[in-house]
Design a protein around this nucleic acid. Structure first.
Lengths: 248, 248
DNA sequence: GCAAAAGTGTTGACTGTACACCCATGT
DNA sequence: ACATGGGTGTACAGTCAACACTTTTGC
């Protein structure tokens, strides 16, 4: 199970450090073996609960099948076919620390490519890559972003999820309009958040019944975060011209 | 392996009739067991070749993992976890007829919900549903439609794929523009088709390197076959004019 | 007052759809 | 000639990104 969450404005993944052979000391996705008379979804939900204490059935969290990995030799002990799942959760209590794992922690996605990156066991690097890509793609055309948040939430927090997962900055005004004009995406509660630091208190929302986002929210539409002159991104589109209406 | 093709303007799927217990006489997806030292993709390609004679590696046909199905009891003989694949192929030679299958044939998707629908073995009805939905969704945002065609093809044939898979009618003019303005989707060959019946000969194209279709082609945009007369009536009149001054 | 964040308004560029019209070919 | 399908032109309506502006809070 690839458990993704947004922690400190960073998309992060839960990994466990292996205490036993093989790949001792390497980091791995949490998981285990399918039991008799247990379906794939049920097994994934069980592993998720063992790791985080979160119940997939009760909560609003998101759990979906990601794909299966069966290259021969991926586990040196024997032939193993893994069915990977993707979980999107709001916060991770980080249950358990003993058992067959030496340590459990959240790794920011950004650090997985850095020098201090953890070494990943088996073919889990490939699974992690697929999980991140799936999550990024799903934000575009579905309403799963709310699975990263506890309810109720503000639109700024929801926007923060998109910005963390995609690594871009979004225009608050346009994001708000997009979310509010999509029918059934969120429902206003009428209440406002209690103050945190400064600025006008934001209205609170709950997730609505809608699951699809049509038309999608495009992640290519990052606003320039730097001082407007340097970053003109120009999408190499050969034919069409792009934005850059600044001089007119 | 769920093998989809477009035959006689109908999206169709290849099914084999089971000759042995269990589900004798029922129709099933072609498939088999994973071999030692064989990856999942390789096994799917092997099954596809056994069934159709098409080589996934050489041809331009499309083969992707669809998902895994592991509910206990789905096979009455023993616990079996199936990894399903989706194949999109241009034409199906329909190799083999003996072995453990009584018959092999293409079933139009439309007939699967009809009264004369074949009874499907195991949980294959669920897999077939997922395969069709995946294919329909993928046409929206990727270039896989060309996998249904032999090369070269005309834009009308490509449009016919969309119409068959989605069950809608698309505007030829707008479809053409959409395909041609997407960079790298198709490449013109300069040649024209040899006459078939009537009308101007169409230009021939090959699939290009592009795999994504952004922005996507929306399948909700079916042209209305009825109601065209009712809404025309009158132009919105006498309103004071504003905006719409194009001035580009 | 000032900074900061929420929220509204506006505009120009682009996109999608509908449909009129021209082109090339078979019968 | 005319039917048929290929291909181009164009107008209208809708959408999106950019950004100016107003509102509501903490300090």
């Amino acid at each position: 199970v690839a458990i993704l969450t947004v922690h400190a404005s960073e998309l992060s993944i839960l990994l466990v450090q292996r205490a036993d052979h093989p790949y001792r000391g390497y980091w791995a996705l949490p998981g285990g073996f399918l039991r008799d008379r247990e379906g794939l979804d049920a097994a994934a939900a069980r592993e998720l609960a063992e790791e985080t204490g979160l119940e997939a059935a009760t909560g609003r969290l998101h759990l979906e099948q990601l794909g299966s990995y069966g290259m021969p030799g991926r586990d040196p002990r024997m032939r193993v076919v893994t069915v990977a799942y993707l979980a999107l959760v709001p916060n991770v209590p980080l249950a358990r620390a003993g058992g067959d794992a030496a340590e459990v922690r959240l790794w920011p996605i950004r650090d997985l490519a850095a020098a201090k990156a953890p070494k990943l066991a088996f073919d889990h690097a490939s699974i992690v890559t697929d999980a991140i890509e799936r999550a990024r793609a799903k934000l575009e055309y579905s309403s799963v972003a709310t699975a990263f948040l506890e309810q109720p939430f503000t639109l700024s927090q929801l926007r923060g999820v998109y910005e963390a997962v995609w690594g871009v900055k979004l225009d608050p005004a346009n994001f708000r309009r997009k979310v509010l004009t999509t029918p059934g995406l969120v429902r206003p509660l009428g209440a406002h958040e209690q103050r945190t630091s400064a600025g006008r208190p934001a209205e609170l929302y709950k997730a609505g019944p809608a699951t699809e986002l049509t038309p999608p929210l495009s992640r290519t539409a990052a606003t320039s975060s730097t001082t407007s002159a340097a970053s003109h991104r120009q999408r190499t589109n050969t034919g069409r011209r792009n934005r850059s209406s600044r001089a007119s």
